[in-house]
Amino acid sequence: MHSIVHFPSPTLSLSPKISSFKAPLFVLTNNFLPPRFHGSVCRCISSSYNSRKPPGSSKTPKTPVPKSPTPKPKSPKSAGLKTPPPKPSTPTAKSNVSDSTEFLDAQDWSFLAETSSWINQNMATVVAAAQLEQDSKVVLCMGTERFVDYLCSVEPSIALSVLHYSLMELANIKENHDSVRCRQGDIAGIPPSWSKLDVVFINFLPALLCPLSQIFQALVKMCAPGARVIISDTQGRAQLNVNKQSYPGVINGDLPDKVELEKVMQGYPIQLVSFRDEPDFYLAVLKVA
């Protein structure tokens, strides 16, 4: 008879692939088998264990399902729908003024500081037309440093405020006249705290961004009854035409003649006191009722 020995949980070393598997096994010992069966039994056992799969590997791997491409939404045009035309971006008036002010701030304003004997004489005529008094509240628009020097020397006790687009010009004025109040801008941007003005000088009207009608509207609100508005150009209309060619981005308008000035004044409590329009001097004196 052949003897059978039972090993409850042997560790097999028949093949490196199955050396880690432990399972109950019946082994026919070589002592009771003829030698010609030894190799066959070993090959049988080895092939049997090599065909076994490790635990957990019996599950069939999932085959990835290809995702169907997401259909692109049809554009209104391809779907036969009418689309409204895009609305053009219209810049606001405030942004336009802000951009223009920044542009004018960087420009060269030295042409306003030209000096000569007749320009100095014209400047004295402009200041005399204002009929300044002590403690008068005065606003100077587009004034030069030289004009401020002369104005303060004539009447040092006035409460003077200066408007200009150029921060450099304002800084130079402030450096020499610390009591003078300076602000970047023009007549249309006068703050309410500057109200009840007695005199307003507009020294270079063609450079202002706001139209004359808007200037009159602001003056009526800010000026005290009987206030004087002095519109002047000490270089005159002839030099203005020359400056237009040299500084096209700075000079935005023109000096109004008498007919145009009176036409714009209609509807405002403003009257024309005197008017001069000469090649080398322009002066219009207005009075707020």
Rank of each mutant, 00 (worst) to 15 (best):
Q266E: 15
L163R: 03
V162H: 08
L208E: 03
A238T: 11
N252C: 14
K67S: 08
S153Q: 15
F204Y: 15
Q245F: 10
G185T: 02
K94A: 15
G39W: 05
P225V: 12
E278N: 13
A227D: 09
K263F: 02
V127E: 08
A113F: 05
L160M: 11
D105F: 06
S193H: 11
E114D: 13
Q134P: 05
F147W: 09
I202Y: 04
A159F: 07
S20G: 10
P61S: 11
A106P: 03
A238L: 13
C210S: 15
H177A: 04
P69N: 04
D149K: 10
M168P: 04
F147H: 07
P279I: 07
N172M: 12
G185W: 01
I45D: 01
V229G: 00
M1N: 11
I251E: 06
S57D: 03
R276Y: 13
K82M: 08
A238Q: 13
N120H: 11
P54Y: 07
K137N: 15
Y268S: 09
K62R: 12
V250R: 06
Q131G: 01
L170I: 04
I270G: 09
V285I: 12
Y282V: 06
A23E: 13
S116E: 01
F281V: 07
S98V: 02
L286A: 04
C223V: 12
P16A: 09
K59W: 02
I4K: 05
H6E: 09
I270E: 00
G39S: 13
I231H: 05
G143E: 01
K137A: 15
S98R: 13
P211W: 00
S20E: 13
K87C: 03
D149M: 03
P206I: 03
I187M: 01
G80K: 12
R36I: 10
S40M: 06
V220R: 01
S13W: 05
D105G: 07
T83D: 07
S48F: 12
G143W: 09
V229E: 00
C223Q: 02
L212Y: 03
D186P: 00
P225E: 03
K263A: 15
I270W: 10
A79H: 01
V97Q: 10
K221V: 07
V139P: 01
L25F: 15
S274E: 13
L12N: 07
A224Y: 08
Q184F: 02
K17Y: 04
S19F: 05
S89G: 04
S20R: 13
L255E: 11
S100D: 14
